[in-house]
Design a protein around this nucleic acid. Structure first.
Length: 484
RNA sequence: CGGGGCGUAGCUCAGCCCGGAUAGAGCGCACGGUUCGGGUCCGUGAGGUCGGCGGUUCAAAUCCGCCCGCCCCGACCA
């Protein structure tokens, strides 16, 4: 009997990714081109991402709000760069209630404009500042080429929007939220990232400065995992967001915006997944522990199932990082344990608990960790030891996944000394190289290699060098890589 | 929008070139039995507007035309 194997990552990464998303039941294609349905397992993962982020947003003083999906089209024309960046990918509603609308409405691609408009009504005084808002929302961008989670016409995200009295405060906020994303990526998703600044040509349409965390996928391509923008006074001036300062002087506010989308799920898949399937980071996994009972005959079945239920209940009472462990008992009687093992490995559950007659007799369970294959990842422990063992094991797996991803990133982050070397390394890795800052040199690299300037890492070496493309003096090193 | 691939059962596909009778297979699904410590095995069964429209023909999944959709690669992008 042959079961369709997932294509291996090395042989066809794109196909591995697509099939994994579908077979793990994270998502499915919708009837409209480029749209996807996020299925319960995928949405549960998103909910855990939401919880982890939302907690951090609240802790840094932000409040959630909800702004409308429909935005007057004219709003997009108020900020020059913003309109240039977004006009080509706007979905526009022209009819409503059977009639042509007087003014077309854009389906929001992002909410700077509508929030800017509202702020212009709400903000009068320095006492009204700062505004620290976030919203969890869906947005629509009419992308030409789509891919599950990574780029769909409609996607879910959070978008933070803040307004401040001073430039310094807004810049501080921008970097604070970048660090929040970094902390989330590392400590919740076990994904190492490079925080950096985007070049002029790569920055957000309407931003003064865009910061990013870049992550390396399993095929060594780069993914912008989250962004944080310092918007200066661009939107303040476009929407007349002004306040009176302590000296009764009228001032424009300084704004920021920052976002992380369901694309991040794509990052989790591509960073941690292996040829068996998903490997979900324990702190975000919808199911952290799955219990698989193993029985021999009819008699045994009832006895073992009962014991398995007890084990499940005991695990559900264990607290890991302030929450009960998310445990599932796989009591299906129409598939064999071997089938279940493969099934849960495909779905990326971090820990499997096996309970069979041998275990039951000995008062033990067998633990198998998803991040280590076969026997290496298996251990037998006393049932009573679970409250102590499981939280530690989940932490271990988190750390194991992180270290593995980090080693991969470091091994594939090259520092070419010549342009020829750069062209060679970006074919299968990242290049960190001196860059003079000119768009021409960036464009040349892109034309020659398809690799783009991912970011200028915040962490920079001492001194200066010469641009790897043109040889002129360079103050910064930048990362060039092929990207999603 | 350019290049490529594809549309036949829930899924993966065969059949099409060379037209012919109730359109097939494997997997999945339902039922019965068997098995269960790494994707059990056997049996029975349900399941199809052959992407759509039009044309050619005695006859179209098969030939011709138009249309629609999806996937992959490129340009654009979270």
């Amino acid at each position: 009997m042959s079961f369709p194997k997932l294509p291996s990552r090395s042989e066809n990464f794109a196909e591995w990714y697509n099939q994994l998303v579908l077979r793990a039941e994270l998502a499915d294609y919708a009837p409209v081109r480029g749209c996807m349905v996020i299925r319960p397992y995928g949405w549960a993962l998103w909910e855990n991402i939401q919880r982890a982020l939302d907690k951090r947003f609240k802790a840094t003083g932000h409040q959630n709000a909800a702004f409308p999906l429909l935005i007057p089209l004219s709003f997009f024309e108020k900020e020059k760069e913003h309109v240039e960046g977004f006009a080509p990918e706007l979905a526009v509603v022209t009819h409503g209630g059977g009639k042509k609308l007087e003014e077309p409405l854009a389906v929001r691609p992002t909410s700077e404009t509508i929030i800017g408009y509202m702020w212009s009504k709400w903000i009068r005084s320095y006492r009204d500042l700062p505004q620290l808002l976030n919203q969890w929302a869906n947005v629509v961008r009419w992308e030409l080429r789509t891919k599950l989670f990574l780029r769909t016409l409609e996607f879910y995200w959070q978008e933070g929007h803040t307004a401040h009295a001073t430039r310094a405060e807004a810049e501080e906020e921008t970097l604070r939220m970048l660090r929040v994303y970094e902390d989330f990526a590392v400590n919740e998703a076990a994904i190492p990232v490079v925080p950096g600044r985007k070049s002029e040509s790569e920055k957000f349409a309407g931003a003064v400065t865009t910061y990013t965390i870049e992550a390396m996928m399993g095929d060594k391509r780069a993914l912008q995992a989250a962004t944080s923008h310092f918007l200066g006074q661009n939107f303040a001036k476009a929407f007349e967001i002004r306040y009176l300062d302590q000296n009764n002087q009228l001032q424009y506010v300084w704004t920021t915006s920052w976002g992380l989308s369901t694309r991040f799920i794509g990052a989790i898949i591509m960073v941690h997944g292996d040829d068996q399937g998903l490997r979900l980071p324990p702190r975000l996994a919808p199911i952290q522990v799955v219990v698989v009972p193993i029985w021999k005959s009819g008699d045994d079945e009832a006895r073992i199932l009962e014991a398995a239920r007890n084990v499940r209940d005991r695990i559900a009472s264990i607290v890991y990082r302030e929450q009960p462990i998310r445990v599932h008992l796989d009591d299906r009687d129409n598939v064999t344990p071997g089938f279940k093992f493969n099934d849960w490995e495909l779905r990326g559950v971090p820990v499997r608990v096996e309970l069979g007659p041998r275990d039951l007799a000995a008062g033990t369970v067998t633990l198998a960790r998803r991040d280590k294959p076969g026997k290496e990842g298996k251990q037998t422990v006393d049932m009573d030891a679970l409250p102590e063992v499981l939280p530690r094991l989940l932490d271990d797996i988190h750390e194991g996944l992180y270290q593995q991803a980090r080693a991969f990133l470091e091994a594939n982050l090259h520092e070419p000394k010549t342009y020829e070397e750069l062209k060679a390394v970006v074919r299968d890795g990242w290049a960190l190289a001196w860059w003079c800052g000119s768009a021409d040199c960036e464009a040349r690299i892109k034309a020659d290699t398809t690799a783009t300037n991912r970011c200028i890492p915040l962490e920079q070496p001492e001194g200066q060098g010469t641009c790897i493309v043109c040889g002129r003096p360079a103050q910064v090193k930048a990362i060039f890589a092929r990207a999603y």
